[in-house]
Amino acid sequence: MKQRVLIVDDEEQILKFLTTALEASDYAVIQARTGREALHLIATAAPDLVILDLGLPDMDGKEVLVRARAFSNRPIIVLSARDREAEKIEALDLGANDYVEKPFKIGELLARLRVAARLAGQEQPKPTVFEADGLRIDLERRLVTREGAPVKLTPKEYDLLAFLVHHAGRVATHRQILLNVWGPAHAQDTPYLRVFVGQLRAKIEAKPEQPKLILTEPGVGYRLWTED
């Protein structure tokens, strides 16, 4: 069965090409041009994925996000022409699963859609093993190996890596990471996090100066690379 994608955008041309592209990629497409319409469709048509533009005529895209999250946990990918980091972080913290910045190439959007769909699908059986680029993380045994050799991590480094594994392929904001790994008292300690990520990269990356696994989303957070 085809997955259903709801596209929320007020720009006719964007709606048009996205619909064409997604239908060609085996998605079923539903369109919404206003925030009100979008909320209605999320509630009634139960789309598998939502692509949401932040600039809508009747309400702010973030408002749609908040209201939708009250009743739906479907993956929502935010589309935004705004390149302000604060906006993206806010959207992610409000419950968006990922974001794509305008202008974008269709391949990038499709990849994000796949990641989001897979993570949503895997929600019930949590991943126990993550493998990428020679790194293997066994979450059950708390074991990290690189090319078969065990990697020694401090408990916090391990927690950080595990959190990224749970969000593999998706961006995790600084705030989300800090809240989950260090707790609310450290929610603002981004520089601290940067140091930790550096240490972690030194231990798990093949070339720590050119990280391939833990990717930096400038000003927003980190994304763990997946083979997708």
Binding site: F17, A21, A24, K105
Partner: peptide, 14 residues
């Protein structure tokens, strides 16, 4: 600038 560019880039990459 970005809105038309998004369409152009999206359409061409599609």
């Amino acid at each position: 600038l970005r809105t038309p560019l998004a369409t152009i880039s999206g359409a061409i990459s599609t």
